[in-house]
């Protein structure tokens, strides 16, 4: 700039630290959780307060970087005065709340929700959900043997359905969708937590390639008119996979390795580094097995990415290992 001294010398240090405007914090409110009386911010959800005092509340559709949709209902707690149980993930605390997180009613609902999921969805790649099933002694087999896989779930229309016999329990089993080189979508494993739709939508990517289509038990994640991903709006950011809690959405690399029996999670290291592409500076967590990157994720607690990446960060690592194949 024209002022030479300014150009040659860095500007002096400000006397005060630049700060974000301070927002009014509502006064803390007194609540009771499982008999413990405590104060909490009324901006906090019941789940946040529970976690802060070490109460392990199960969640499936909740994720720190997404807007709570409170649909899985596995986090429900009992609130004195409320006719129904309330979802801990989205309900904010209010003065005087008396909350039970492990009452028989709570345990029953959580167990039933897990049984419903366990009896209708393939949870084989959802260790977290399986852990909850064991914890709540859920018995998903008591609804009878699973019905054979359905072929045309994507074509189901809202309205009347064919009445079941009742001798088998209906599931969401259906063929796996493999229509591109980067993602595999196995909706037999989908618990319809909405996370992928949120990540593809306003919570992160804003691409809106997928949505929930259909209604009731026939509701499913779908592109427009169920077109293959390459014909859809998908930009392969992988953020849907990043948030999927059950492995219904999986990187093709992981899917192939699992199929080949070479996926070995205990043998993998996870290292945080920074993406080598544009100047935004996204933290990548490189999952490395046998000196090969097998998966890329991003931590949710990093302000830059909040867990989300783009196609280059997520998949653009191959050039590094292509060098490994050809000795120089």
């Amino acid at each position: 700039m024209s002022d030479e001294s300014y150009w040659f010398k860095p500007p002096p240090r400000a006397r005060e630290l630049p700060m974000a405007p301070v927002r009014d914090e509502p006064p803390p409110v007194e609540i009771t959780i499982d008999g413990r009386v405590l104060f909490a911010s009324s901006n906090a959800t019941i789940l946040e307060v529970c976690r802060s005092i070490g109460i392990d509340t199960p969640t499936l559709c909740y994720l720190e970087n997404l807007t709570p949709v409170n649909v899985c209902r596995v986090c429900v707690v009992e609130l004195a005065g409320s006719r129904t149980l309330v979802p801990a993930c989205s309900r904010r605390v209010e003065a005087g709340m008396v909350i039970l997180t492990d009452s028989p009613r709570v345990r029953l609902s959580r167990r039933m929700v897990l049984e419903f999921l366990g009896s209708s969805v393939d949870l084989s790649t959802a260790p977290q959900a399986k852990g909850y099933l064991a914890r709540y002694e859920a018995a998903p087999t008591r609804y009878g043997p699973p019905a054979p896989p359905a072929n045309a779930r994507d074509a189901r229309e809202p309205g009347h359905h064919h009445a079941p016999e009742g001798n088998t329990s209906e599931t969401v089993a259906q063929p796996t969708k493999i229509d591109n080189d980067l993602y595999v979508r196995d909706y037999s494993k989908c618990i319809l937590c909405f996370k992928c739709v949120e990540a593809c939508g306003t919570d992160a990517q804003n691409t809106f390639a997928i949505t929930v289509a259909g209604r009731g038990f026939d509701a499913r994640i779908s592109t427009e008119l169920n077109v293959p991903l390459p014909d859809s709006a998908c930009v392969y950011c992988g953020n849907c996979i990043g948030v999927c809690p059950t492995g219904a959405l999986m990187f093709k690399s992981e899917y192939d390795m699992r199929k080949a029996g070479t996926w070995n999670e205990p043998a993998q290291t996870q290292t945080d580094t920074i993406c080598s592409y544009c100047g935004v500076g996204c933290t990548l967590t490189l999952h490395v097995q046998d000196n090969t990157i097998v998966k890329v994720t991003s931590p949710m607690d990093v302000s830059v990415t909040q867990g989300h990446l783009c196609i280059k960060g997520r998949f653009g690592f191959e050039h590094v290992q292509n060098r490994h194949d050809e000795p120089k």
């Binding site: 080189d181 980067l182 998908c234 392969y236 080598s276 592409y277 196609i311 653009g316 191959e318 050039h319």
Partner: peptide, 16 residues
């Protein structure tokens, strides 16, 4: 979106 500069790095992966 899926490519970068002279493509030295991004040529390494298959982008749909």
């Amino acid at each position: 979106l899926s490519d970068y500069n002279t493509g030295v790095q991004t040529a390494g992966y298959d982008s749909p």
